[in-house]
Write a protein that binds this DNA or RNA. Sequence first.
DNA 1: GCCGTTTTCGGCCCGACTGTTTTCAGTCG
Length: 591
Amino acid sequence: MNNRELAKIFYEMAQYMKMEEIDFKPFAYERAGASIEALEQDVEEIYKEGGVAGLEKISGVGKNIARKIEEYISTGNIKTYQRLKKKTPVNLEELVNIEGVGVKKVKILYRKLKIKNLKDLEKAAKAHKIAPLFGFGEKTEKNILQGIKFLKRSKGRFLLGEILPHVREIIERLKSLEEVEQISTAGSLRRMKETIGDADILVVSGKPSSVMDFFCSLPEVVKIWSKGNTKSSVRMENSFGHVRNKISNGVDIDIRVVAKESYGSALQYFTGSKEHNIITRKIAIAKKLKLNEYGIFQGKKMIAGKTEKEIYKILGMDWIPPEMRENQGEIELALKKKLPRIIDYKDIKGDLHCHSNWDGGVNSILEIAETAMEMSYEYLGISDHTKFLRIENGLDERQLSQQRKEIEKINAKIQNSNVKSSSKSKFQILQGCETNILNNGSVDIKDEALKKLDYVIAGVHSSFKMSKEKMTERIIRAMKNPHIKIISHPTGRILKKREEYQIDFDRILRAAKQTETILEINAYPVRLDLNDKNIRRAKRAGVKMIINTDSHQKNQLRFIEFGIAQARRGWAEKKDIINTQPLQKLLKFLE
DNA sequence: GCCGTTTTCGGCCCGACTGTTTTCAGTCG
């Protein structure tokens, strides 16, 4: 908890420094923030063990930043941060989240119009006070309004990836209570939707009131909306669930306590979706039964309710995985007992989209590989950015060939250290790269260099606002390059921030099929791209997919879960996803 | 403000794009 808070402060300090046109320092603070966020140990612990000198061992942390960490630990505050904030007291996170608005514009908006937050900005834009400002204009004003509109549409929704880990942590704490017999997430969180409105927790307990007392007095709770004997609703603190430097308003959590004999029906009822439940209840009615959150009833007699499985069974259906419960045809298939066997969370054997510290990433190739081995992967693909992305320190042809040698060395080292352990001796690091698809569809690395890699990923990282026709052509041309095997984040959306770019997805699918190009299901929480609908389309078109994390630090390899969840929501089966294959088969496929 | 098998001082964080300029500033990846 500490680390994330602190990292967030450093990110914000960096932004304020950029606002003041300070050179280089912002970069130092960002880097320190990123490396603190990636730490496994709490900074406070590091400080207790080794003092300021211990803190200085953290990469990117020197004398000054170490002192600031010390200040934060001992006073809970950083004076420099307060000073920066005082100079421009605005909701920076909120304002820079609008596309096209950065720190410099925020500064002008505050100095000239005293705009502090989204509300002020919207008011000013609607009153046409923005366009006359120096450096702004008609178009900027329009873009700002559009950006606000887009933000509002996704307002109140949270990323699965930022909420789930915290809710799980809270569930762990609840589990430690003697009174808690069974516990689970419910609602959209259990269905693993890419964004969620609020979080639902379902508990079985003989002592509901003490569970309620414990829950409502959690330190993260900032507001109790309602507190009852079996149902409570609270607002969590703001920092609850932020990813990198993006902070959201606190999420609401609803908790319900139900009787043991109703747990299954309550879980079914509160997991939803609403549309799915409407149909299941209709099926019950047709069988002269009644289904509600307490159980399934024949007249007044309750005939089931303890588990979800028995509920579905009585309705004449197979149990449906929560990720599929969107009334998209899953009920019909479950009635015919013909549900597809969707990919399992344990099926992934490796991750081919990972960034190391050779480009903008945090960890060394070896460190990432160690995490991959901990996850029992058989392989790991390093795919650093290439030279077009200068700020990400993209690699050129020469650096790629240097990296190849490094990877060979590490592979040899891993093989030697694991001779005894047969399970790990199979592990292998592959070398790829994530090339940039330029405007004309060519990529920024020469074919001769691409040829030497184990595989090549290509993605769009610039000029997002092309026409549909041009963007489609651009990506198809990249797919036709025989070296390019994978298209990363194929639609380019950023959740709560940027729409997909315009593409003719059917044409992309046809070209992917024809060129045997793999489409990525990017597991990074703000991307989740392809989304569930496109995954289904790709599956239907017979296009192969791969679930990758796009991780920039080793801990982010765990994001794979969110990608698998999307694949499950898109009904993808094991055979549709190529990184469910063992190493040799994967290599053959890539070839 | 950090860092060092090019450097303990002098480099780092660049280039495309957009919209605002009339030669450039801000934003984004």
